[in-house]
Design a binder for these strands. Structure first.
Length: 268
DNA sequence: CTTGGGACCTGGCTGC
DNA sequence: TGCAGCCAGGTCCCAA
């Protein structure tokens, strides 16, 4: 599922091909995915606009446009953005035409993705918490924010208003690396554990970006290639397998209806 | 304010 | 082989 490293990879790999280009046409096959404005207006306003920059905030991909507006895309569970695929793609929901003849195809098997065209991007991304990879996100920032929460640390890491961009896979990986049990109440972490968690979050995310994201289900890069971050997973989706540190069996537990994977022996 | 549960959505898997 | 029912999880909405 696309989390921060996957969206960052898409941004990095798409940028050279789309920044500076102009939208010449938009075909919407599934109006449900266009949240704002109504589809006709969406099409009319987007056509003719030039992409001035491509950015990421949390798991949102943001195309900044010459007219001052922003085209914002969230891939949710199964969204994929492909640059001029050679074959017609299954589950194609929206196709963007660019002035260099490129086609940007948005496919989404489960139809949970979302697209907005807005003047004020803060209306969409304004509630997000800090960017975990930004220099301003320090161990002290994390410690301060954790104090306000007594929910399980796993649930807190998944809260996009607490910290932006972490999803189920990387939350599990970061907690394993920091040796923290996913059910620990957030405000009970010791200073040393918070430092470890801060380091683990950044390490896990940077490492996944260098592997171009994790292709566990539908995720693909814009050229159709897969990411390889899943091969570095130590606990995520590995229930029943041996822990890479101690050999104990990796456990699976539902926390907030999300599968959580961890080592009972290494994480406490 | 935080918290937790259900809904959304569809294809793949399980078990009968 | 068919098929009902469950599961996957990012986010929104609502109630406590």
């Amino acid at each position: 599922m696309p989390e921060l490293p996957e969206v960052e990879t898409i941004k990095n790999e798409l940028s050279p091909y789309v920044v500076g280009r102009q939208f010449t046409g938009v075909t919407v096959y599934d109006a449900k995915l266009v949240r704002q404005p109504p589809v006709e207006e969406f099409r009319r306003k987007l056509e003719g606009q030039r992409i001035t920059s491509l950015d990421r905030r949390g798991k949102y991909l943001i195309f900044h446009l010459s007219g001052g507006e922003a085209l914002i895309i969230h891939l949710r569970m199964s969204g994929v953005l492909l640059l001029h695929p050679e074959q017609p793609e299954k589950y194609t929901r929206v196709v963007f035409q660019l002035d260099n003849g490129s086609q940007l195809v948005f496919t989404d098997r489960r139809r949970l993705g979302a697209i907005w065209l807005v003047e004020n991007e803060q209306a969409i991304v304004g509630k997000l918490g800090p960017e975990p990879l930004a220099p301003e996100f320090t161990s002290e920032t994390l410690a301060e924010r954790l104090q306000k929460h007594r929910a399980p640390i796993k649930a807190v890491l998944l809260d996009q208003a607490f910290i932006a961009g972490i999803g189920n896979m990387y939350a599990d990986e970061a907690l394993f690396a920091a040796k923290i049990h996913p059910l620990r109440e957030a405000n009970t972490l010791a200073p040393r554990e918070i430092q470890n968690l801060h380091h683990a979050i950044r390490d896990v995310l940077w490492s996944a970006i260098s592997s171009k994201g994790a292709s566990v289900d539908t995720y693909k890069r814009p050229d159709g290639e897969l990411g390889t971050a899943q091969f570095n997973f130590r606990v995520a989706h590995l229930a029943g397998k041996p822990c890479p540190t101690c050999g104990a069996t990796i456990q699976r537990l539902a926390i907030r209806n999300r599968g959580s994977y961890f080592c009972l022996n290494c994480q406490s």
